[in-house]
């Protein structure tokens, strides 16, 4: 028998969600090239904005196939950034789009993603500025 997860259960899943990312690791992958790192950060932000816009439309249109594709596409960038908290939310959203398609659950995950990303973006910008200063 299929049982839907309650809101309290969903919220408790993410109560200890950690905002994490790894710019230093990414800079190593860029072989120390800060110009490339800056470009990757720009593309990451652009991808996230696109993802947020697309998911909103797909949720309104109840288009689970497109929602799944959007989730799949953003995962690669989140893995590169080692943004494990955001990746966890997207994986849950992707799973929900393929299984119970619970609208309330998916809307909660969508709002949580935006909330957590806002914090991550500020922290990431701060970290990048620090790294630039260290370079000088």
């Amino acid at each position: 028998m299929e049982t839907k997860i309650t809101t309290a259960e969903i919220e408790s899943q993410f109560k200890d969600l950690e905002i994490s990312f790894d710019l230093k690791g990414l800079l190593q992958e860029c072989m120390g090239q800060t110009a490339l790192l800056e470009e990757l950060i720009r593309l990451f932000k652009q991808n996230v904005l696109e993802f947020v816009g697309n998911v909103k439309v797909h949720l309104i249109n109840d288009d689970m196939k497109a929602l799944g594709f959007a989730c799949h596409k953003i995962k690669s960038g989140l893995k590169m950034m080692k943004a494990s908290g955001l990746l966890q939310i997207v994986e849950q959203l992707h799973l929900a789009s393929k299984t119970d398609k619970d609208e309330k659950h998916m809307n909660f995950l969508y709002s949580l993603f935006i909330e957590e990303y806002t914090v991550l973006e500020k922290q990431m910008d701060g970290e990048y500025k620090r790294m630039q200063k260290e370079e000088i």
Partner: peptide, 9 residues
């Protein structure tokens, strides 16, 4: 590759 970030790297 449709992910520009990965493609650039």
């Amino acid at each position: 590759e449709d992910d520009e970030m990965l493609a650039s790297l």
